[in-house]
């Protein structure tokens, strides 16, 4: 009996969480006329929350994929911005996180506190000074203008330090006694054990950079270099159908990465139990 109540409660909670997303996916299959009827807020009646499209159409996807090629170009721009950033951040952060978690050096904890402070800095603080710095380095109209600051964000370090901390000191001590250099320890012992953390970092970093909006607008001078996230943020109240379809397509790469690695996330959690 208790089990059934628990199951129902679980389904309820999951439904609340998934409902807007499912609604969005359903909307992306609706025709534009149904969407404008649904979103017409002026007529003062209660809106029907239709989850089932009247006519199951792929019209919106067709528009996005084939009729308007600029969306594909922007999609690739997003990929070009995000991939190097994610890879760079994973590499840089894992090195630094190892040092912060396991190695001792002067000022370690105070430096880490500064890292945390830099983590929560609001974006507008660094926007204009970064512009000046990038201008002096001649990197303004270049994809590197977003890739470089993203690679060195302190988010990865804080996340990975957490995971590395759970690795017992004893295994590292044993390796040191056997004469391994720190680099060897890093590659052979640490990295396999924090696979879950790495995947989580990849996923979150990917999402963050996939959704970046303010920086490209300011650092890029050409329209053709804008990523897809800017079009998504520019809601001009006209083409909701396309926005739904774009949203679904936008969501897919992040989901792919998640499904690629989610077993690793969940596995490592239970592994540590030993």
């Amino acid at each position: 009996m208790k089990k059934i109540i628990k199951c129902i409660f679980l389904l309820l909670v999951t439904a609340i969480f998934l409902f807007p997303v499912v609604y969005m996916i359903a909307c992306s299959f609706m025709s534009s006329s149904q969407i404008s009827k649904m979103l017409d807020f002026a007529n003062g009646e209660y809106k029907d929350l239709n989850m089932i499209p009247e006519m199951f159409t792929l019209e919106q996807f067709y528009q996005v994929l084939f009729r308007r090629p600029e969306y594909l170009l922007k999609f690739w721009n997003s990929v070009i911005i995000t991939l190097p950033t994610v890879i760079g951040q994973v590499v840089v952060s894992s090195f630094a996180a190892f040092a912060f978690a396991k190695l001792k050096f002067p000022f370690r904890d105070k430096l880490f506190f500064i890292y945390i402070v830099l983590l929560i800095l609001p974006l507008q603080v660094t926007l204009v000074p970064n512009y000046i710095i990038l201008d002096n380095m001649n990197l303004l109209n270049n994809f590197l203008a977003i890739i470089l600051p993203g690679t060195f964000s302190t988010f990865g370090i804080c996340l990975l330090r957490q995971s590395i901390k759970y690795i017992p000191d004893s295994s590292i001590e044993a390796a040191r006694i056997d004469g391994a250099s720190y680099f060897r320890i890093f590659t052979r012992i640490i990295i396999p054990q924090i696979k879950g953390g790495l995947i989580t970092l990849t996923l979150l970093c990917f999402i963050d950079n996939w959704n970046v909006v303010e920086q490209p607008l300011i650092y890029f001078e050409e329209n053709s270099m804008y990523p897809l996230s800017i079009t998504m943020a520019d809601i001009s109240n006209s083409d909701y159908g396309i926005i739904f379809a774009c949203g679904v397509m936008f969501m897919i790469p992040a989901l792919v990465i998640y499904f690629y690695g989610h077993k690793d996330i969940n596995l490592s959690i239970y592994d540590i139990e030993k």
Binding site: M24, C27, I235, I243, G247, Y258, F259
Partner: peptide, 18 residues
């Protein structure tokens, strides 16, 4: 478990209408 992670993944603009 995965279901809970999906809200993070969806971009802001698509959900505004919802």
């Amino acid at each position: 478990r995965s279901a809970f992670l999906i809200p993070v993944v969806v971009p802001v603009a698509s959900l505004i209408c919802v």
